[in-house]
Amino acid sequence: MDRPHIEALEVGQEVFEAAKVVKRDDVKAYADASGDQNPLHQDDEFARSVGFPGIIAHGMFSMAHVAKSVKDWAGNPSALRSLAVQFRAVVYMDETLVAKGKVAALDPASGDVTLDVWAEVERDGQRVLTIKNARAVVNLA
């Protein structure tokens, strides 16, 4: 896998865009693997009873997609140093979640690259940010 080089990056540069369709089976598998069995993520009737049109994905399911996108871009399992996200909107089944990352800061001495990252879906013709104000640090040294 090609790995990015810090010398070739510039602040403001968009470095990845990764789309994923959110599937019910994956959300169920995530509930079982993570241990988060909140019915909001599995039971449509329950989700409707609290005002949603159907089940929603776990916030952490979306964060995993962001983490994977950053990690895949860095190309090295040890490179990912931190990730902090804010969950701002829910994600429904069969929506396409798009994670994006942009260089926020570069520290050539340490090899640390700070990225602004976020995730969005398109809903009713509008772009909806589901994860925003997120920051990732990867070390490319």
Binding site: H58, M60, M63, S78, R81, S82, L83, A84, V85, F87
Partner: peptide
């Protein structure tokens, strides 16, 4: 309750 924010710092895989 809803999950508002999450952060991880990793020291090793």
């Amino acid at each position: 309750v809803v999950h508002g924010e999450q952060a991880f710092e990793w020291r090793r895989p």
